[in-house]
């Protein structure tokens, strides 16, 4: 049992975190980049918020929404934390995610058998401490489940990255940001047109859109994750 003083201190810390989530000001403990400067500029706080849900809607498979979600998960990743991928259809291809920059050694893959189990697994993963991000592909979400996801993420500080079909657009969303990904035919690099449909702290009237070049991620990623010659040292206080 915690002593009353320790319990009060823990309460205070929890409240502080809640407060910082509503009055967003940028710091790496509360915010992280989407990985693309053009998208960060659209967000009122200049980045995505930890302890929230982000939705990526895409009209068709192969539009690149999954890549954006993985990029965000990589940005959200912190040492000692894990990324959980909930993959009901067993179509997530780890080598591609690794090539895109995801560290597979701190990633966990979960294969639920049906929609019901998928929802349960997403909520469990979002609720756990030391989970940096949860990637999932829920096709349908009722408002109550969605809200439960959001509360779970808020409680633990994990980020829920939901990649969903565009048919989910009329559904009510509890996500802090909802993006619509539309690929652009292009001759050189792979360009995506991304619309910010809804974002907490931003007026709905101003619809915002940006064009993202996926090559930007590759150059940025190459620069920051150039080469590790020696293995990273574990955190000395890890139990």
């Amino acid at each position: 049992m915690l002593s009353p003083a320790a319990a009060a201190a823990a309460d205070l810390q929890r409240l502080r975190r809640l407060l910082s989530q509503s009055h967003a000001d940028w710091s790496s403990s509360t915010h992280f980049s989407t990985g693309f400067a053009a998208l960060d500029r659209l967000l009122p706080s200049g980045g995505l918020l930890r302890g929230s849900l982000i939705e990526w809607l895409s009209a068709s498979p192969g539009a690149g929404a999954g890549l954006l979600a993985v990029a965000a998960a990589i940005q959200a990743q912190r040492p000692g934390n894990v990324v959980v991928v909930i993959d009901r259809e067993r179509r997530f291809y780890p080598p591609a995610a690794a090539a895109w920059g995801l560290d597979l050694s701190s990633a966990m893959l979960v294969h639920p058998a049906n929609l019901h189990e998928e929802q349960w697994a997403v909520e469990q993963a979002l609720r756990a401490e030391h989970v940096a991000a949860v990637i999932a592909h829920p096709p349908r979400l009722d408002a109550r489940t969605f809200r439960r996801f959001q509360l779970a993420a808020e409680a633990s500080g994990a980020v829920g990255l939901l990649v969903r079909p565009a048919s989910a657009r009329p559904e009510r969303s509890w996500a802090a940001a909802r993006w619509l990904v539309e690929p652009q035919p292009s001759l050189t690099s792979w360009r995506l047109r991304i619309r910010l449909l809804h974002c907490r702290g931003r007026y709905a009237a101003e619809s915002a859109a940006a064009e993202v070049d996926l090559d930007e991620w590759i150059t940025r990623f190459d620069a920051t994750h150039a080469c590790h010659l020696a293995p990273e040292l574990a955190h000395s206080t890890a139990r």
Binding site: L109, V110, H111, A128
Partner: peptide, 28 residues
């Protein structure tokens, strides 16, 4: 995944409800 008690508890819960084979890590 056992360095943090919270993560270990998550793995236990997921693996016992969804099956031992359903909670995996990947190696290239």
């Amino acid at each position: 995944f056992s360095s943090s008690p919270a993560l270990a508890a998550l793995v236990n819960r997921l693996a016992n409800r969804l099956g031992r084979d359903a909670v995996v890590r990947c190696r290239l």
